[in-house]
Structures are given as C-alpha cells and as structure tokens.
C-alpha cells in the first residue's frame, strides 16, 4: 500500500479559537475513511484547510508526495483532491450535464482560441468529455435528467449530482461533506452502496464527514474522531465504538454526582 494523502500536524485557529490543533491523517490508496465528531468539532474546517479555502498556520499536507500548502483552491482540485459541500453548492441555473462539464474542465488542454476556431483539439476533447460526463451521470442515475436545470432537481438528486460533479474533476481523493444529510434511512442505504461502488469504479480514495453513525460504521475502514479541533481517537470502527473518550465526547461525562 502506498501513502496517498499525508497530513502532518495541521493547526488552525481563528483569533483565540483553536479550530484545528495538531491534526494528523494518513490515507492509503483505495482507503475509505470517516471523519466524525460533534457539531463544531472542526470537521468542515479540516476540509476547508485541505482544499485550500483556509491556509493552515502550521503543519504540512502532501498529496502523492506533493506539498499542498500554499496552493489555492483550484490548484489543489487540479492536483487531485475534490470535494462536495455540506450546504449544496450546485451551479443552479446550469443544466445537470453542464454542472459536470464545468468540473471536467480540469482535463482540457485546448485554449479559448481553439474553442473560437473549433480546432481539432477542441472538438475531440469536448466530445470525449461529453461522453464521459454522460457515463458518469448514468452511474449516478441522473442521465435522464441531464438537460434539466439543476436548481429544479429533488434534494436527493442534488446530493448525488454534487458527488458526480466532484468525480468529474478526476480526483485521486474525494472528500464528501455530510453526503447523507437530510436523507431518509432508505436513501442512506442506497447512498452507502453508491459510495462503495464509486470507490470500485473510479478507483478513488474517499474521506467522509458524516453524522449518521450507522452509515459511517458500516462503510468506513478507519475513523478519526474530532472534538473541539483535537483528534481524540483514530482507529477501526470497532475500536472507535468502544473508545471511552469518544463516548464521552458524544454523550458527555458520566454523571458522578448521581452515582454518589
């Protein structure tokens, strides 16, 4: 197994608030890991640091050995790290297909001059990427909606489109920020299968933020638990489930006064 993502003691604070302190994460190729923690634990902040929205104040992030520190969002995405958003951020007025095509822009080589002159490169690449986008939509069961305005999609489809769009950038690592938020148990089950099949089909490594323990425990191989920006546990789902610190973070300390 080769190390794909190496996060080495990342720290970030807003003013006096330590949003993330000394965060470490190792991901091998093909891993499916989970990042959990109570609300405000710093999970999304962690994603924002990884994708270049915030610059970490200390520590290093390496993707395939390449240093990510100091890169801006779009460079990091092109380096192979794509994300979805907790609060859906689709390109609302564009069609479903166009949403995916925007993301596949990372693959094109031809310039705008090529587009204006309809050069060979332009035609070949556009055609290939259109076809690729359609296959991607098929995997996500969105192909029949390809020409719908994405704003008008039902909620579940919008969530799936977010994932499809992120995949269109051809990432090495996919970061999913609460993909199951607002879904019912049935949809969650389908989503779990989808995530597993995405990993198989597209050979991506997945890091997942999720509140639904069932989902996380069932599909993730390793889990990291954050609380107040501090990593309180790392391990397999079984280890995490028994970890007293994790139970404490979620349920609070046992009420000692009552015991007396």
């Amino acid at each position: 197994m080769s190390v794909l993502l190496d996060i080495n003691s990342i720290s970030l604070s807003f003013g006096g608030l330590k949003a993330l302190s000394d965060f470490n994460l190792l991901m091998n190729k093909g891993d499916l890991q989970g990042l959990i923690g109570p609300n405000g634990a710093g999970k999304t902040t962690c994603f924002n640091v990884l994708t270049g929205v915030y610059a970490p104040q200390a520590g290093e992030m390496r993707l395939d050995g390449k240093l990510l520190n100091g890169m801006c969002c779009n460079q990091i995405t092109r380096a192979g790290l794509a994300r979805t958003f907790q609060n859906i951020r689709l390109f609302g007025n564009l069609t479903v297909l166009d949403n995916v095509l925007v993301a596949s822009r990372t693959q094109i080589r031809h310039t705008m001059f090529g587009t204006v002159l309809r050069s060979m490169g332009h035609l070949r690449e556009e055609r290939a990427l259109h076809a690729e986008a359609m296959t991607l939509l098929e995997v996500f069961d969105l192909a029949h909606l390809a020409h719908e305005t994405s704003r008008n999609l039902p909620y579940g489809s919008q969530r799936r489109l977010e994932i499809a769009r992120a995949l269109a950038t051809r990432p090495k690592i996919l970061l999913l920020d609460e993909p199951a938020a607002g879904m019912n148990p049935q949809e969650k089950k389908l989503l779990a299968e989808l995530i597993l099949s995405v990993r198989e089909k597209f050979h991506v490594t997945i890091l997942l933020i999720e509140h639904d323990m069932c989902l996380v425990m069932s599909i993730c191989e390793r889990i990291t638990v954050l609380d107040h920006g501090v990593t309180i546990a790392q391990g397999t789902p079984q280890e995490i489930q028994c970890d007293p610190k994790v139970i404490e973070a979620y349920l609070g300390k046992p009420m000692e006064s009552e015991a007396i």
Binding site: C72, C73, G92, T106
Partner: peptide, 14 residues
C-alpha cells in the same frame, strides 16, 4: 458561467 453561479464551488471544481 460557473463563476457567476457560485464562485466558491467553481474554485472547488478546479
């Protein structure tokens, strides 16, 4: 067009 729709998402899509 993606910039007009959602600049943050556009950045995140490379």
């Amino acid at each position: 067009l993606s910039i007009r729709e959602n600049e943050i998402a556009a950045e995140a899509m490379g």
